[in-house]
Write a protein that binds this DNA or RNA. Structure first.
Lengths: 326, 326
DNA sequence: TTGTAAGCGTTATCAC
DNA sequence: GTGATAACGCTTACAA
């Protein structure tokens, strides 16, 4: 593979001049430039990016650490983040942690050893002690001390869900979620605001008796059977706000088993976008997280990273997406 | 950030010795090693990976070019490929081409300019002329001259589908696919073997009159309306093999509109895994591509790449996954 | 305008 | 066992 020296030698000039041509920096006489460009084309020379990174001390690669690209929402987020970064001249490394702390640490170390210029972090683990706060890190949906973060407007999402259920004249309203996450895992999530916004709005409208159902986090996957017993005491609910579409999906299955009709007997609202679930025969009405807006917010924070404003937050608006369940 | 010189200076030795300790190469006196290890820990020194790549002329990064991580199957494949590469000490860069040739070229160039050590290529575009055949490239599902590739056993998949429809005593059998791809796009795909295996087996069993329906490629997305007119002439089919689950999904919608019951009146078989589609209320019976096995095959080819056997092929077995539609 | 040379942080060769 | 030092391929003062 030809290098800059070859180009200089064949073009009969110094390597600095070649460099100037490549980077369009500094003055180069027109004829010299043309000569060099010709040689570059002939050799189909491409500057070695490793060497360039070496000199510039940055490589324009950002790592995205996330649990799992198999989940539809993550797959979408991944897609949009990569597009955003690409438009700004950055490449993206993908790191499926599978929620394993050890793997997350390996990837976080890539920031310290100059493998990448920045890290986007999406985790439920407490990686606080493995973060070098002087380096560019942006977190999605989780609070870490002095780490800027991006989250959907979960509070507003809760309000939207409450409004919708009240519009439908629901009288026995329930929230189902795992938002105690913060207490269970030591990692504070923005997701807990879904419940807060929901309950807040209901209270403000004079509705006080929200039924609060918690289910254990730590297994993303919940069975219909598990939920049946959880929901058993509440036979007469007519409006349910679920912390995710995944939960909403399972709840609807439980209701169907019970002989309830959705949405005629019970309204159900999920969270995420209602685009992730199979075999339901209907579209879940859901509070929509916008992966494109989230990606843009993440890109802004990571590419303009500055240690000084490491407590920046960017909150992305949500809206309710119309489905068949509420 | 401390570098190897700092470590050497503080440990009172030469940098070569530090390097030996880091890489566990060559002999180092026990005491010297311990001393150096202590300094490394104190400084929390991490070798600069860019510099290392510079010297070694490789950086242990593989790029995966694919149309879109939003598609469930691609998201899964991505996940498994990343895990495989990780287990072998490699990191993965992700490149959503969105099927745009220009973006694919940018990423393919990363191979030439040393940004990555290898490329996994999943494309429908004819990128033949942009490939440097001396560099490590592995293609999935597409033939390029002298580029090793991995594909599912599409031929066998076709056979399995044929067998299943015959077992169900189907009398009017149809294939729906876009496998003429090769003629339309100049890129040969292994996918065309689905039809070949299917038709072959039917012929071998004395069934000759397979109805062959083609729909235009180039739009991955097909509307129910488009399909209705395509299928209109064939009111009495009772067994359909579709080239993908996406097609199967649409076909089932069309059949439902027609008042046909699936699987009672018509058996439908898809291809991919039947895990990708919403709102159907049933699981598609499908020929299953195994993303883990595919990922392993890809990893084998890319990490053991050798120009000499650039026409290697790895064919991954498929099986039929039981669903509700056939 | 252009070229020389230092420097980026490693690894590896070759003396000692 | 260990330490200088060249080399990897580039960018960028600085000098000419």
């Amino acid at each position: 593979m030809a290098n800059i020296k070859d180009v200089a030698r064949i073009a009969g000039c110094g390597i600095a001049t070649v460099s100037r041509v490549i980077n369009k920096s500094g003055y180069v006489k027109k004829e010299t430039r043309e000569k060099i460009e010709k040689v570059i084309a002939e050799l189909s020379y491409q500057p070695n990016e490793i060497a360039r990174s070496m000199t510039l001390q940055k490589n324009h690669i950002i790592a995205f650490i996330l649990p799992n690209s198999k989940h539809l929402f993550f797959g979408e987020l991944l897609y949009h983040v990569e597009e955003e970064l690409f438009d700004y001249g950055y490449k993206m490394m993908i790191c499926n942690s599978s929620e394993q702390l050890e793997k997350e640490i390996v990837y976080l170390d890539m920031l310290k050893n100059n493998r990448v210029d920045g890290v986007i972090l999406l985790t439920n683990n407490d990686v606080e002690q493995y973060l070098n706060k002087k380096l560019p890190i942006v977190s999605f949906d989780r609070y870490f001390l002095n780490v800027p973060y991006v989250a959907s407007d979960n509070f507003q999402g809760g309000i939207l869900a409450a409004k919708r259920l009240l519009e439908h004249n629901c009288k026995n309203i329930m929230f189902i979620g795992d938002d105690a996450q913060g207490e269970h895992t030591d990692v504070l999530t923005d997701v807990s605001k879904r419940r807060k916004g929901f309950v807040n709005h209901l209270h403000s409208q004079g509705y006080e008796n929200v039924i609060n159902v918690e289910y254990p986090l730590k297994n993303y996957f919940v069975s219909v059977e598990q939920f049946e017993s959880l929901l058993n005491p509440y036979q007469d609910v007519d409006g349910i706000f679920c912390i995710s579409d995944s939960v909403a999906y399972t709840v609807i299955k439980v209701l169907e088993k019970r002989g309830k009709r959705v949405p005629e007997d019970v309204k159900v609202i999920g969270f995420d976008g209602g685009r992730s679930f199979n075999n339901l025969g209907m579209k879940i009405t859901s509070i929509n997280q916008d992966p494109l807006l989230i990606a843009q917010a993440i890109r802004k924070l990571i590419l303009n990273y500055d240690v000084k404003d490491s407590n920046k937050k960017l909150i992305v608006p949500v809206k309710i997406s119309e489905g068949d369940t509420a």
